[in-house]
Simulated assay, not measured.
Amino acid sequence: MNTTDFVKLRSTIRASLTDMAKEDPQYNRVLELMELAAHYHSGTRKDGVTPEFYHQLSILGVAITQHLNLTSPASVYLAILAHDLVEDFPESKAVLQAQFPEVVTYSVRLSKYRDGVEISKKQYFQEMAHCPVASVAKLIDRLHNLSTMTGVFSNEKMLAYAKEVDDYFLPMAKTARKLFPEQKSFYELAKSMLIDQVRMVNFFVPQLMARTKKLVDEPSPGI
Protein backbone atom coordinates (compact mmCIF):
# COMPACT_ATOMS: atom_id res chain seq x y z
CA MET A 1 0.00 0.00 0.00
CA ASN A 2 2.98 2.37 0.27
CA THR A 3 2.65 3.50 -3.34
CA THR A 4 1.63 7.14 -2.96
CA ASP A 5 3.97 9.98 -2.11
CA PHE A 6 3.60 10.84 1.58
CA VAL A 7 3.02 14.57 1.06
CA LYS A 8 0.51 13.89 -1.71
CA LEU A 9 -1.33 11.32 0.39
CA ARG A 10 -1.54 13.67 3.35
CA SER A 11 -2.80 16.60 1.26
CA THR A 12 -5.36 14.41 -0.53
CA ILE A 13 -6.78 13.08 2.73
CA ARG A 14 -6.84 16.55 4.26
CA ALA A 15 -8.75 17.85 1.24
CA SER A 16 -11.29 15.01 1.49
CA LEU A 17 -11.86 15.65 5.18
CA THR A 18 -12.13 19.40 4.60
CA ASP A 19 -14.87 18.78 2.06
CA MET A 20 -16.66 16.50 4.52
CA ALA A 21 -16.39 19.15 7.23
CA LYS A 22 -18.27 21.62 5.03
CA GLU A 23 -21.28 19.32 5.28
CA ASP A 24 -20.69 18.00 8.79
CA PRO A 25 -18.57 19.90 11.37
CA GLN A 26 -17.63 16.68 13.20
CA TYR A 27 -14.99 16.08 10.53
CA ASN A 28 -13.15 19.13 11.81
CA ARG A 29 -12.38 16.96 14.84
CA VAL A 30 -10.78 14.41 12.53
CA LEU A 31 -8.63 17.13 10.98
CA GLU A 32 -7.58 18.35 14.42
CA LEU A 33 -6.65 14.84 15.59
CA MET A 34 -4.77 14.28 12.35
CA GLU A 35 -2.43 17.13 13.29
CA LEU A 36 -1.98 15.83 16.84
CA ALA A 37 -1.27 12.29 15.65
CA ALA A 38 1.28 13.61 13.14
CA HIS A 39 3.05 15.37 16.01
CA TYR A 40 3.58 12.09 17.87
CA HIS A 41 4.21 9.89 14.85
CA SER A 42 7.11 11.98 13.63
CA GLY A 43 9.71 9.24 13.10
CA THR A 44 10.13 6.59 10.43
CA ARG A 45 8.73 3.08 10.09
CA LYS A 46 10.79 -0.07 10.61
CA ASP A 47 12.33 0.26 7.16
CA GLY A 48 14.06 3.43 8.37
CA VAL A 49 12.81 5.35 5.34
CA THR A 50 9.01 5.56 5.26
CA PRO A 51 7.53 8.28 7.50
CA GLU A 52 5.90 6.68 10.53
CA PHE A 53 2.68 8.61 9.96
CA TYR A 54 2.31 7.02 6.51
CA HIS A 55 0.79 4.02 8.27
CA GLN A 56 -2.04 6.02 9.83
CA LEU A 57 -2.66 7.96 6.64
CA SER A 58 -2.77 4.80 4.52
CA ILE A 59 -5.30 3.16 6.83
CA LEU A 60 -7.35 6.34 6.89
CA GLY A 61 -7.28 6.53 3.11
CA VAL A 62 -8.69 3.00 2.82
CA ALA A 63 -11.40 3.77 5.39
CA ILE A 64 -12.46 6.87 3.47
CA THR A 65 -13.10 4.73 0.39
CA GLN A 66 -15.54 2.78 2.57
CA HIS A 67 -17.29 5.90 3.88
CA LEU A 68 -20.77 4.82 2.76
CA ASN A 69 -20.33 1.32 4.18
CA LEU A 70 -19.63 2.55 7.72
CA THR A 71 -22.29 3.44 10.27
CA SER A 72 -20.08 6.01 12.00
CA PRO A 73 -17.26 6.94 9.61
CA ALA A 74 -16.08 9.94 11.65
CA SER A 75 -15.57 7.71 14.70
CA VAL A 76 -13.66 5.19 12.59
CA TYR A 77 -11.39 7.92 11.24
CA LEU A 78 -10.70 9.19 14.75
CA ALA A 79 -9.97 5.67 16.00
CA ILE A 80 -7.57 5.05 13.14
CA LEU A 81 -5.61 8.21 13.84
CA ALA A 82 -5.37 7.35 17.54
CA HIS A 83 -5.01 3.58 17.31
CA ASP A 84 -1.30 3.49 18.21
CA LEU A 85 -1.08 6.60 20.37
CA VAL A 86 -1.78 5.26 23.86
CA GLU A 87 0.26 2.09 23.30
CA ASP A 88 3.28 3.74 21.64
CA PHE A 89 3.14 7.10 23.43
CA PRO A 90 1.60 6.63 26.90
CA GLU A 91 2.02 10.33 27.59
CA SER A 92 -0.52 11.05 24.85
CA LYS A 93 -3.37 9.56 26.91
CA ALA A 94 -3.69 12.66 29.08
CA VAL A 95 -3.67 14.87 25.99
CA LEU A 96 -6.36 12.75 24.35
CA GLN A 97 -8.49 12.80 27.49
CA ALA A 98 -8.28 16.59 27.58
CA GLN A 99 -8.69 17.35 23.90
CA PHE A 100 -10.38 14.29 22.37
CA PRO A 101 -12.18 12.43 25.17
CA GLU A 102 -14.40 10.64 22.64
CA VAL A 103 -11.31 8.92 21.21
CA VAL A 104 -9.71 7.54 24.37
CA THR A 105 -11.96 4.47 24.55
CA TYR A 106 -11.05 3.46 21.01
CA SER A 107 -7.35 4.09 21.50
CA VAL A 108 -7.31 1.96 24.65
CA ARG A 109 -9.43 -0.78 23.08
CA LEU A 110 -7.09 -0.97 20.08
CA SER A 111 -4.10 -1.34 22.40
CA LYS A 112 -3.00 -4.80 23.53
CA TYR A 113 -2.37 -3.47 27.03
CA ARG A 114 -4.63 -2.61 29.94
CA ASP A 115 -2.94 -0.64 32.72
CA GLY A 116 0.43 -1.72 31.39
CA VAL A 117 -0.42 -5.44 31.31
CA GLU A 118 -0.79 -7.29 28.00
CA ILE A 119 -4.17 -8.99 27.71
CA SER A 120 -4.79 -12.34 26.01
CA LYS A 121 -5.40 -12.41 22.28
CA LYS A 122 -8.77 -14.04 22.94
CA GLN A 123 -9.91 -11.10 25.05
CA TYR A 124 -8.37 -8.58 22.68
CA PHE A 125 -10.17 -9.86 19.58
CA GLN A 126 -13.43 -10.39 21.44
CA GLU A 127 -13.35 -6.70 22.35
CA MET A 128 -12.60 -5.80 18.73
CA ALA A 129 -15.43 -7.96 17.43
CA HIS A 130 -17.97 -6.26 19.69
CA CYS A 131 -17.10 -2.76 18.56
CA PRO A 132 -18.29 -1.44 15.16
CA VAL A 133 -15.50 1.14 15.16
CA ALA A 134 -12.46 -0.74 16.50
CA SER A 135 -13.19 -3.80 14.37
CA VAL A 136 -13.01 -1.71 11.18
CA ALA A 137 -9.83 0.07 12.23
CA LYS A 138 -8.09 -3.17 13.23
CA LEU A 139 -8.94 -5.00 10.01
CA ILE A 140 -7.58 -2.22 7.81
CA ASP A 141 -4.55 -1.94 10.10
CA ARG A 142 -3.67 -5.60 9.47
CA LEU A 143 -4.27 -5.19 5.72
CA HIS A 144 -1.70 -2.41 5.62
CA ASN A 145 0.77 -4.34 7.76
CA LEU A 146 0.53 -7.36 5.47
CA SER A 147 1.02 -5.25 2.36
CA THR A 148 4.14 -3.48 3.66
CA MET A 149 6.02 -6.12 5.65
CA THR A 150 8.13 -7.60 2.81
CA GLY A 151 11.74 -6.64 3.27
CA VAL A 152 11.03 -5.35 6.77
CA PHE A 153 9.86 -8.40 8.75
CA SER A 154 11.65 -11.74 8.94
CA ASN A 155 10.16 -14.62 6.95
CA GLU A 156 9.03 -16.23 10.19
CA LYS A 157 7.27 -13.09 11.33
CA MET A 158 5.53 -12.67 7.98
CA LEU A 159 4.17 -16.22 8.23
CA ALA A 160 3.10 -15.57 11.83
CA TYR A 161 1.24 -12.42 10.76
CA ALA A 162 -0.54 -14.41 8.06
CA LYS A 163 -1.48 -17.15 10.53
CA GLU A 164 -2.93 -14.56 12.90
CA VAL A 165 -5.34 -13.56 10.16
CA ASP A 166 -6.75 -17.09 10.00
CA ASP A 167 -6.71 -17.57 13.77
CA TYR A 168 -8.03 -14.22 14.94
CA PHE A 169 -8.83 -11.59 12.31
CA LEU A 170 -11.21 -13.58 10.11
CA PRO A 171 -13.18 -14.95 13.10
CA MET A 172 -13.34 -11.42 14.49
CA ALA A 173 -14.63 -10.09 11.16
CA LYS A 174 -17.24 -12.86 11.03
CA THR A 175 -18.53 -12.02 14.51
CA ALA A 176 -18.56 -8.29 13.82
CA ARG A 177 -20.45 -8.85 10.56
CA LYS A 178 -23.19 -10.65 12.49
CA LEU A 179 -23.33 -8.03 15.23
CA PHE A 180 -23.22 -5.04 12.88
CA PRO A 181 -24.99 -6.10 9.66
CA GLU A 182 -25.15 -2.48 8.52
CA GLN A 183 -21.42 -2.75 7.85
CA LYS A 184 -21.65 -6.14 6.11
CA SER A 185 -20.27 -4.79 2.82
CA PHE A 186 -17.13 -3.56 4.54
CA TYR A 187 -16.52 -6.77 6.46
CA GLU A 188 -16.98 -8.88 3.33
CA LEU A 189 -14.50 -6.73 1.42
CA ALA A 190 -11.96 -6.81 4.28
CA LYS A 191 -12.31 -10.60 4.50
CA SER A 192 -11.67 -11.00 0.78
CA MET A 193 -8.65 -8.70 0.81
CA LEU A 194 -7.15 -10.38 3.87
CA ILE A 195 -7.55 -13.83 2.36
CA ASP A 196 -5.81 -12.66 -0.82
CA GLN A 197 -2.93 -11.20 1.18
CA VAL A 198 -2.53 -14.35 3.26
CA ARG A 199 -2.52 -16.54 0.17
CA MET A 200 0.29 -14.49 -1.32
CA VAL A 201 2.33 -14.63 1.88
CA ASN A 202 1.82 -18.38 2.27
CA PHE A 203 2.78 -18.96 -1.36
CA PHE A 204 5.81 -16.72 -1.76
CA VAL A 205 7.46 -16.73 1.67
CA PRO A 206 8.07 -20.52 1.85
CA GLN A 207 9.60 -20.32 -1.63
CA LEU A 208 11.86 -17.52 -0.48
CA MET A 209 12.86 -19.51 2.59
CA ALA A 210 13.62 -22.58 0.47
CA ARG A 211 15.81 -20.56 -1.90
CA THR A 212 17.66 -19.01 1.01
CA LYS A 213 18.24 -22.42 2.58
CA LYS A 214 19.52 -23.80 -0.72
CA LEU A 215 22.03 -20.97 -1.04
CA VAL A 216 23.26 -21.61 2.49
CA ASP A 217 23.47 -25.38 2.05
CA GLU A 218 25.17 -25.36 -1.33
CA PRO A 219 28.96 -25.05 -1.14
CA SER A 220 30.55 -22.17 -2.98
CA PRO A 221 32.48 -23.05 -6.20
CA GLY A 222 36.04 -24.10 -5.52
CA ILE A 223 35.37 -25.29 -1.99
Rank of each mutant, 00 (worst) to 15 (best):
L143H: 08
Y168K: 11
Q123V: 12
Y187A: 08
A21S: 04
R142S: 03
V165G: 06
G116Y: 05
F6N: 02
V152R: 06
D84R: 04
I223D: 08
Y77K: 00
L33P: 02
E118D: 04
R199K: 12
F89D: 00
A63F: 02
A160W: 08
K174T: 11
M20G: 01
A210P: 07
V104W: 00
L139V: 07
R142K: 15
S107Y: 02
P206R: 09
A98C: 01
L57M: 13
S92F: 07
M34K: 01
H39P: 04
V133A: 03
L96V: 00
K157L: 15
F169E: 08
K174N: 12
Y187H: 04
F203M: 13
T4N: 15
S135L: 04
S192G: 15
Q66R: 11
E188Q: 08
R199G: 04
D217P: 09
S58E: 12
R211I: 07
E218W: 13
D196V: 14
A37T: 13
E91D: 15
K121T: 08
M158K: 10
M34V: 06
V95C: 10
M172T: 05
F180P: 03
L110Q: 02
E91I: 10
S185F: 07
V108P: 04
Q97C: 11
H130I: 04
T105Q: 09
K157R: 15
D166L: 10
E127H: 05
M128S: 04
Y161K: 07
E156W: 10
V86G: 06
R211L: 12
F53W: 08
E127A: 12
L189Q: 10
S58T: 13
V201E: 09
M158Q: 09
L96P: 00
A190C: 11
L194E: 01
K178N: 14
Y113M: 10
A37P: 01
M209T: 02
Y77W: 03
M149E: 06
K213C: 01
T212V: 07
F180Q: 03
S72R: 13
E52V: 00
K213P: 02
F100C: 03
E127S: 10
H39Q: 11
H41L: 13
E182C: 06
V62K: 01
A176Y: 01
L57W: 11
Q126I: 13
N28I: 06
A38Y: 08
S72C: 08
S135Y: 01
V133W: 02
K163L: 09
R45Q: 12
